[in-house]
């Protein structure tokens, strides 16, 4: 079966810094997949390549079998991708409800739009803040709001960059439950995450990214048991550091 998302030899560098190195990655439809790796491993960059915010130097990105490498970001979103960024991206001086309306107006209007906004607000635990300026929300609430906007698009593939950063264990668990609920409705999820409890809660498979390469891949249990993976998190690996042009 064709994967929902596939990259082939995807490569990106910033000047001499090779941030994405020959990444061959595949994600099946309906899968929950976690992407882990130390800070600076190139995880967020990989997302921006998938979304078309960065143009790769080499390689291809396929979505549902279609080569989308040259598509603009909005066109990829319209094909069913959606994202929550690492730094929350919201519309700060608009109300919380208005933020959601802008995401929902693609496929809803009138009374059903209002009803869906109320339903989402309750789901995101933001009902009390509906008419609050989004910029006044706490960091955690902004994350929820952005997740709410991302799922409003009814994506087939949801990209989440550190969705639980700054959340309490309870909130983290609730986020995990939400991701699983979405997944039951057929949404595939690719999540960058540091919290291993969260990874264990949701992930079916895990990919470890290190210095822009796929370092390891497997089931959650296998990855957690892998000593080499623990080692790169502790900086005790003999894997080469990010290659620069000077010494390449």
């Amino acid at each position: 079966m064709t994967p929902l998302l596939e990259t082939r030899a995807l490569s990106k560098h910033f000047g001499g810094l090779h941030v994405t190195n020959d990444v061959n990655f595949a994600l099946a439809a309906g899968e929950i997949h976690c992407l882990i790796g130390p800070n600076g491993a190139g995880k967020s960059t990989f997302f921006r390549l998938l979304l078309g915010e960065y143009t790769p130097e080499r390689g291809q990105i396929l979505y549902a079998g279609e080569d989308i490498t040259a598509l603009k970001p909005f066109a990829r979103i319209r094909r069913g991708m959606s994202v929550k960024f690492q730094v929350p991206g919201i519309f700060p001086s608009l109300s919380v409800a208005h933020n959601l309306e802008i995401a929902l107006q693609h496929h809803l209007e009138g009374a059903s739009l209002g009803a869906e906004i109320r339903r989402l607000l309750a789901f995101l635990n933001l009902s009390a803040a509906a008419s609050e300026r989004a910029g006044n929300l706490s960091h955690g609430q902004k994350q929820w709001l952005e997740i709410g906007m991302a799922i409003s698009l009814k994506p087939r593939l949801l990209l989440l960059d550190e969705p639980t950063a700054g959340m309490s264990p309870d909130e983290t668990f609730a986020t995990g439950a939400m991701v699983q609920a979405l997944n039951r409705d057929g949404v595939a999820v690719l999540a960058i995450e540091h919290d291993m409890a969260f990874v264990r809660q949701i992930a079916q498979r895990v990919t470890v990214l290190h210095v822009g390469r796929i370092f390891a891949q497997g089931t959650t249990d296998a990855i957690i048991a892998d000593e080499r993976v623990a080692a790169i998190y502790l900086g005790e690996t003999d894997a080469p550091p990010l290659r620069s042009v000077a010494d390449a």
Binding site: A75, R78, Q105
Partner: peptide
């Protein structure tokens, strides 16, 4: 109207507007 919604969304955060599928 929807047009104005998108316009203020672009003013507020063009990247997010694009990531909601709008051709900014």
């Amino acid at each position: 109207a929807r047009f104005g919604n998108v316009l203020v969304a672009i003013r507020e955060n063009p990247e997010r507007a694009e990531m909601l599928g709008y051709d900014v």
